[in-house]
Design a protein around this nucleic acid. Structure first.
Length: 282
DNA sequence: GCTCTTCGGCGTCACAGTTA
DNA sequence: TAACTGTGACGCCGAAGAGC
């Protein structure tokens, strides 16, 4: 297998893990690390809660932002309604449309004609391109959850921020320490990131009006120049997009960490309630 | 030291969505 | 509606690490 072929294969793996379930632990990509956090978070609840009391979650699909109501069945038979602080899921790169799963299967099993590859590619693009931008997703998240930082729009110099510098909140080190303690409560400090330079490099001139072009050679030059301009802009856009993507993934990771802390607290709370409500057996 | 594998970044293309 | 923007996909490259 060629080097590129390998990479292509790995990418397929990543997509499989993000669209289906994260079971194979071979890929160490960023996407995977987020999914790994998520599954770890789920495990915490799955392992601990059933040993304490029977828990059922009601209204889990009541819509984004509405707190889920958890019915906790205490050993005494009493049922307590607990309003959870854990938010309902948000659209993200992790939760891709179900149809993508089908597509992954298609990719995995094909090694066929170019025609089917073209169709495949078109379908894939059709599916993938419907996802909202990272900025949009993250800003939606941030509006629902106070702990999630916002990706800010580029600001002009008049707005007080230095050029090319945007201020935003960043995930802190909220992971479990070696002593088993969590190091953050979800409050994020701010840091500064570089915003892209929007100015064109020196030497790039704007397009001449079509009317001023005469010879085919001039037209060709104009076309070439336009293409180079477009490529240059796209280059910058791609860089910026990647930066935003990384930022977005970081924020997701921090969100996972915060939710883990909340989950832990809830479990402790549940245990306390259990102690209070259970009949004393001296 | 050499080869292979893995990873991350880059440039480019294609295309859906947005804007003027 | 044309031009522009944002982003997924792809192929390429170099660095780093592992195995020999």
């Amino acid at each position: 297998m060629s080097k590129c072929g390998r990479k292509k294969y790995m990418r397929t793996n990543v997509r499989q893990m993000t669209t289906e379930t994260v079971e194979s632990q071979q890929d160490r990509s960023v996407t995977h690390s987020v999914a790994e956090h998520s599954s770890a978070h789920m495990q915490t609840g799955q392992i601990s809660v059933p040993t304490l009391a029977q828990v059922s979650v009601a209204g889990s699909d009541t819509g984004r932002g509405s707190p889920a109501v958890t019915l906790v069945q205490l050993p005494s038979g009493q049922t307590v309604q607990v309003q959870g602080v854990i938010q309902t899921p948000h659209p993200s790169v992790i939760q891709s449309p179900q149809i993508q799963t089908v597509q992954v299967a298609t990719i995995a099993e094909t090694d066929d004609s170019a025609e089917s590859e073209v169709i495949d590619s078109h379908k894939r693009r059709e599916i993938l391109s419907r996802r909202p931008s990272y900025r949009k997703i993250l800003n939606e998240l941030s509006s629902d959850v106070p702990g999630i930082p916002k990706i800010e729009e580029e600001k002009s110099e008049e707005e007080g921020t230095p050029p090319n510098i945007a201020t935003m909140a960043v995930p802190t080190s909220i992971y479990q320490t070696s002593t088993g303690q969590y190091t953050a409560t979800g409050d994020m400090p701010t840091y500064q990131i570089r915003a892209p330079t929007t100015a064109l490099p020196q030497g790039v001139v704007m397009a001449a009006s079509p009317g001023s072009l005469h010879s085919p050679q001039q037209l060709a030059e104009e076309a070439t120049r336009k293409r180079e301009l477009r490529l240059m802009k796209n280059r910058e856009a791609a860089k910026e997009c990647r930066r935003r993507k990384k930022e977005y993934v970081k924020c997701l990771e921090s969100r996972v960490a915060v939710l883990e802390v909340q989950n832990k607290k809830l479990i402790e709370e549940l245990e306390t309630l259990k102690d209070i409500c259970s009949p004393k057996t001296d």
